[in-house]
Amino acid sequence: MINESFAYSSKYEPWVNLKIREFNQLGYHQINEEDLWKFVVQFCWKRAVPEHYYQQINDIMKITPNHYLDYAALEAQVYKVTSLDDMNLEDLF
């Protein structure tokens, strides 16, 4: 399994930025470079990074907003949230 620290190098930057611009044109302005890279590493390349650079780029370019949003929704559902009993709510009043 590939860990989160898979290097985000400048060789991926143009492709990730292109995909972000595509998402922005479709109205998804909240998705940024870091979010998309995390999706690529933790989901697309979870089991193995494609051997060839062109395959890696192809994986990035195939991402749709729907793919990313499905991943984000799943991540939000399994994210560990602090219990209300453990939170200090006095500051809210």
Rank of each mutant, 00 (worst) to 15 (best):
M1I: 14
M1F: 11
M1P: 08
N3Y: 03
E4R: 08
E4A: 05
E4I: 09
E4Y: 04
S5Y: 10
S5I: 09
S5E: 15
F6I: 08
A7Y: 10
Y8K: 10
Y8M: 12
S10W: 11
S10C: 12
K11F: 07
Y12S: 02
E13V: 05
P14K: 03
P14E: 03
P14G: 10
P14V: 06
W15H: 15
N17D: 15
N17M: 14
L18F: 13
K19L: 11
K19P: 04
K19W: 12
K19I: 12
R21D: 13
R21L: 14
E22H: 06
F23R: 02
N24V: 07
Q25E: 14
L26H: 00
G27P: 01
Y28H: 06
Y28W: 01
Y28S: 00
Y28E: 00
H29T: 04
H29W: 00
H29V: 02
Q30S: 08
Q30C: 00
N32Y: 06
N32L: 04
N32H: 05
E33M: 04
D35T: 07
D35W: 07
D35V: 07
D35C: 10
L36G: 02
L36H: 01
W37M: 01
W37I: 02
F39L: 00
F39K: 00
F39S: 00
V40G: 02
V40T: 05
V41R: 02
F43Y: 10
F43Q: 11
C44T: 03
W45H: 09
W45T: 06
K46F: 15
R47L: 12
R47D: 15
A48R: 14
A48P: 01
V49A: 07
V49F: 11
P50S: 02
E51M: 09
E51C: 13
Y53E: 02
Y54S: 15
Y54E: 15
Y54L: 15
Q55R: 12
Q55W: 12
Q55S: 13
Q56M: 06
Q56N: 02
I57G: 02
I57P: 03
N58T: 09
D59F: 10
D59H: 09
I60Y: 08
I60W: 12
M61A: 03
K62C: 13
K62P: 03
K62W: 01
I63D: 03
N66C: 09
H67C: 04
H67I: 03
L69V: 07
L69F: 05
D70Q: 13
D70V: 13
Y71S: 11
A73K: 14
A73Q: 15
A73F: 15
E75Y: 08
E75N: 13
E75L: 13
Q77G: 08
Q77T: 05
Q77I: 12
V78P: 03
Y79E: 11
Y79G: 08
K80S: 09
T82W: 00
L84P: 07
L84W: 06
D85I: 08
D85R: 09
D86S: 07
M87Q: 10
N88E: 09
N88A: 02
N88G: 02
N88V: 04
N88T: 05
L89E: 08
L89D: 11
E90D: 14
E90H: 11
D91I: 10
D91V: 12
L92D: 06
